[in-house]
Design a protein around this nucleic acid. Structure first.
Ligand code: ZN
Ligand code: ZN
Length: 281
DNA sequence: CTTAACGTCCCG
DNA sequence: CGGGACGTTAAG
């Protein structure tokens, strides 16, 4: 598996982590969809379209917004909240397309074709070894830093040339959701930057606030922004004061990235044109 | 197990 | 909308 895929030595823990991220979820998903999964896949897709009606939860406010949301009975504290989130993560897609396989394929293709992201960053471990002085937490803006990324842009579209694959720009977009950027080049597209696309995909596509569920993964602090680099709790802010019940990190240590609302794969992608969905225009 | 902290609900 | 509470995830 790693014959052709040689990342010039996984010396940095980061790369190892990335490796894991790529392979672990992949494994999982493959397992989920069995060897001879095709029929099953289709079946599941159909099944899923019926909205896993008997999910442990998640139906909460979906049906019977009134009946299901009967919380007024108790002032609170009775915690009739989610009836526990033993929810099995179901891979569903908003558009009805089952992305699990698409994800695997694309990620695979991406991993094999694209060179690993040039810019490495270490959120957890790279905390001290990071470049001190960068301090620019707003490294989000993708437009403008295209110069180097072009290096790892590859047209693997023909590579995938499978007719069965529901090729839809949206899918690509989703793939790139992990923080990558889509670059369109005269008919062909490429994805620059391999992120945690898989995670993004599995991260509950249902409306987050709509009572979808609790499937979303927790984001981790970037470890680069100023607050992240801060050490020690101030013990004075509200978060510090009521840590017992608040379960929140000190306000002065809250990662800048995490302060922003979690973006879904859809919202995350940005095109050179600046439009989120150019093909929809 | 325990601890740290993210996500989300919920109320003011 | 902001802050608090809580469930939950993730790491030790
Ligand atoms: Zn504090
Ligand atoms: Zn940060």
């Amino acid at each position: 598996m790693s014959d052709t895929l040689d990342m010039s030595g996984p010396s940095s823990p980061e790369q190892q982590r990335a490796n894991r991220i790529l392979s672990e979820p992949l494994r999982r998903s493959l397992k989920r969809s069995h060897p001879c999964s095709f029929s099953e896949y289709l079946n599941n897709t159909n099944r899923l379209s019926h909205r896993h009606s008997s999910s442990s939860m998640g139906v909460r406010g979906l049906l019977h917004p009134t009946a299901a949301q009967h919380r007024p009975t108790q002032p609170r504290q009775t915690k009739p909240r989610r009836a526990h989130s033993s929810n099995i993560d179901l891979w569903d897609s908003p558009s009805g397309l089952h992305l699990a396989h698409a994800a695997e394929l694309l990620m695979r293709a991406g991993a094999l074709t694209l060179t690993p992201t040039p810019r490495d960053q270490g959120p957890p471990g790279g905390l001290g070894a990071g470049e001190a002085g960068v301090e620019g937490e707003e490294m989000e803006g993708g437009s403008g830093a295209e110069g180097d990324s072009t290096g790892c842009v590859t047209d693997f579209l023909p590579l995938l040339g499978c007719s069965w694959f529901p090729l839809n720009p949206g899918l690509f977009a989703l793939m790139a959701g992990g923080g990558g950027f889509l670059t369109s080049g005269g008919g062909s597209m490429g994805i620059a930057g391999i992120g945690e696309g898989v995670e993004v995909l599995r991260g509950e596509s249902s409306s987050p606030g709509g009572g979808g569920g609790a499937g979303r993964r927790k984001r981790k602090r970037c470890g680069e922004c100023v607050p992240c680099r801060r050490t020690g709790n101030c013990e004075e802010c509200s978060a510090c004061r009521n840590r017992k019940t608040g379960h929140q990190i000190c306000k002065y240590r809250k990662c800048e990235q995490l302060k922003k609302k979690a973006a879904t794969g859809f919202e995350k992608m940005v095109f050179p044109s600046g439009a989120a969905f150019p093909w929809l225009q």
